[in-house]
Write a protein that binds this DNA or RNA. Sequence first.
RNA 1: CGGGGCGUGGCUCAGUCCGGUAGAGCGCUGCGUUCGGGACGCAGAGGUCCCCGGUUCAAAUCCGGGCGCCCCGACCA
Length: 486
Amino acid sequence: MGDDRKLTTQEEDFSAWYNEIVYKAELAAHSQVRGCMVIRPYGFRIWELMQGALDSMFKETGHQNAYFPMFLPQSALDREAQHVEGFAPETAVVTRAGGAELEEPLVVRPTSEAVIWPIAADWIDSYRDLPVLLNQWTNVVRWEMRTRPFLRTTEFLWQEGHTAHVDEEDARAETLRMLGIYRTFMEDWMAMPVYTGRKTAAERFAGAVDTFACEALMKDNKALQAGTSHYLGENFARAFDVRFQTVEGEHAYVHNTSWGVSTRLIGGLIMTHGDDTGLILPPRLAPIQAIIVPIWKNDEQQAAVLAVAREVEADLLEAGIRVRVDDRQGMNPGAKYYDWERKGVPVRLEIGPRDVEAGSVMTVRRFTPEGQDRKRAVGRTELVAELPAQLERMQQELYVEALQRRAANTTTGIEDYEQFKDVVEQKGGFVFTGWCGDPVCEARVKEETKTTIRVIVGDDLASHVPPASCLCGDESVMEVVRARAY
RNA sequence: CGGGGCGUGGCUCAGUCCGGUAGAGCGCUGCGUUCGGGACGCAGAGGUCCCCGGUUCAAAUCCGGGCGCCCCGACCA
């Protein structure tokens, strides 16, 4: 008769904790099909808020949304050699439809390069038509062997940007611009710090010349690839014949990019901020930023308290806050507290007879840094005036907290392999090391330690004293961040 | 695909070894009392015990076959 109202703690079993949050906070539900997932309204609202923020950033940088079909002919996927090799094993293929075998199998898109470029090629004749800056919000299907809600599902929702440029310089600038937008979004909206950088050839997107990624550190000290941006060179342009006439009147292939973030971000959000009580949502992405819990002892009080609660709700809505009154009957206030804490609502507003009398509201923070008051009574007008700013402060505090956690779990200056293994085993987290650049060495370290090179560090992250040697003992030619990852 | 585990009300599971009236907690419905940190009482609803076959007077339980799910490893946003 264990108390099934309590979550498994992160300490006991992080994986179990994660799963319980996903289902008990009503983010997702099991589906009838292996590896697929139902995103419930509460979880989907988080995704909508993410979409809203990202979409406006895309539009501000000149991108337009479009929609391409979810099916592509097998032959189209087959056109870019590395791309097929990378994706073919995990595609779902429709061979039968309308009661008959299809002439040619249809692949359910695992990503849309091979859907978009054969068509968009016709929209590009001249350098004047470039750049083409497209984005689409869609579902894709990848038949992964092992799935986990939000982190890796057979079908997932994402956005995929696809662009075409006149030359490498322009395309590379786009690749990094979008990486930067992802980073800004993750830091400013998700309060999730990320390391950004280039991937090694082994970790590159199938068909890309260069892949860049945002890497976040989860509370179990494993890394999560939260978003990627690829410079595709002329690979897809050549495969799908996407050419244009240059200023000089010559024919040239476009240079493409693609970039995406998915519903995996919700998994990242959970594992960046959640605690043993449940989810903790950064205010900017919280479907409900403030929940009003009315408290009463009898019908008379109930009427009075609810009336005030409605007024406070209206005032806060006016102030632009996503607020709701929890007027459920037959449920004690305490039970409501636990419920909303598990769902990660940033602020709870308790209104009882005493508050009605005093014209105040009891505010309780979901996340409270050391040295701050969790509960505080404030006057109603004061509340409406300061809650928006308070939510913004919480947003910042969550980010700082996550940043400090990452700093505490990042190790630099490791050159000795045995020492590296110790750090990985005993502490985990991000480890900065040197790398000789040899893929064989990379593969060996991966095999032996289950860590991968998450990114090659750029100047922005480089250590003051860059490592002189690689873990293999050879001379280091670049600094890398290694970690065990999801 | 290799290794482990499990299929019993909506959920978590007991019962299976040793065959004999299908159970518990949570959730749900109604009524009443409660309500400032997970309330309580009373009354109720809800089940092809994963499927097919076999053994038996009798199968959730034993036997054979199938299907499904979960967890751990190799791939991935």
